[in-house]
Deep mutational scan, measured.
Amino acid sequence: LQAFIKTLTGKTFTVEMEPSDTIENLKAKIQDKEGIPPDQQRLIFAGKQLEDGRTLSDYNIQKESTLHLVL
């Protein structure tokens, strides 16, 4: 599935991932794409901060969901 990552500066980019991917995997993909170390990334979806060990499906993240990236 493709999801949108929106930063506080208003920049939006897309990442490809599977519902079974962990938040940790997602942070690694963001690092590959944007060069931001995972330990500096905080991802917010539906008002909740996402925990590394959980999966996208745990948070009911669907295709074309928008996640907010806070540094």
Rank of each mutant, 00 (worst) to 15 (best):
N60G: 14
L56F: 08
H68N: 08
A28W: 12
T66D: 04
T55A: 07
L8Q: 14
S20T: 12
L26C: 01
T22N: 04
G35Y: 03
L69C: 01
L71R: 07
P19C: 06
S20Y: 12
P19F: 12
K63R: 12
T7P: 05
D52C: 05
A28N: 11
K6F: 08
D52S: 07
E24W: 14
L67D: 01
P19A: 11
Q2M: 14
E24F: 14
I44Y: 15
D39H: 13
Q40P: 01
K33Q: 13
T7I: 09
E24T: 08
I23D: 00
E24H: 11
E18Q: 13
A46R: 14
S20C: 07
T9K: 12
G53V: 06
S57R: 11
R42L: 13
E34A: 13
L26S: 00
T9W: 15
T22G: 03
P37Y: 04
K6C: 11
Q41K: 00
Q31E: 09
R54Q: 08
P19T: 09
E24M: 13
R54W: 10
L26W: 00
G35R: 05
Q49D: 12
H68K: 05
V70D: 06
E18K: 13
I5G: 01
K33W: 07
E64P: 04
Q2G: 05
G35E: 03
T22Y: 06
T14N: 05
T7G: 05
I61W: 08
D39S: 13
N25V: 13
P19N: 08
E16Q: 11
L56D: 00
H68Y: 15
S20V: 05
L69Q: 01
E51N: 06
E64D: 15
T22V: 04
T9N: 13
V15M: 06
I44H: 10
T66R: 07
R42P: 00
Q49N: 11
E51R: 06
K33G: 04
G53K: 11
E16T: 12
T22Q: 03
N60A: 08
L8N: 14
Y59R: 01
I44M: 11
D58H: 10
P19Y: 13
L56W: 06
A3R: 02
L1Y: 10
Q49I: 15
L71S: 07
I5S: 01
K48G: 06
